[in-house]
């Protein structure tokens, strides 16, 4: 079971994406769990996650996130993928990040 953590400003718009990613993962038969949180909370939960994806609106926080994440992979979601809620692409990228 892998856990993907999504972080954005207030956790509002990212939670939208989570639903879509969850559905996509189910459709592909992947054993992953996806959670959305505001950045601070996400950084606290980093120990329970396998990778951290930042919404593009907080791309500036990547450095801080990388430091807090230790050896866990951190990436910023591409603006277009985020805006169009391209769950498949984002999920595929995340799986690659985790080396799956």
């Amino acid at each position: 079971m892998k856990t993907i953590l999504l972080a954005c400003n207030a956790g509002m718009s990212t939670s939208l994406l989570v639903q879509k990613m969850q559905k996509e993962a189910q459709a592909q038969g992947l054993d992953v769990q996806i959670k959305a949180n505001p950045l601070n909370k996400a950084l606290e939960m980093i120990d329970q996650a396998d990778c951290l994806l930042l919404g593009p609106q907080i791309a500036y926080a990547k450095k801080e996130a990388v430091e807090a994440a230790g050896d866990k992979p951190v990436a910023v979601i591409a603006m277009v993928d985020y805006g169009r809620m391209n769950a498949k692409k984002i999920l595929d990228d995340a799986m690659k990040l985790m080396g799956e």
């Binding site: 939208l16 603006m79 805006g83 169009r84």
Partner: peptide, 25 residues
Amino acid sequence: DIAKLALLPGIFNINEPVIYGYPIV
């Protein structure tokens, strides 16, 4: 297409889909 996707969150004043998807950026 993006307008359809963005309408419901937009009614509740959440518009990241418009900003990044339409896009405005």
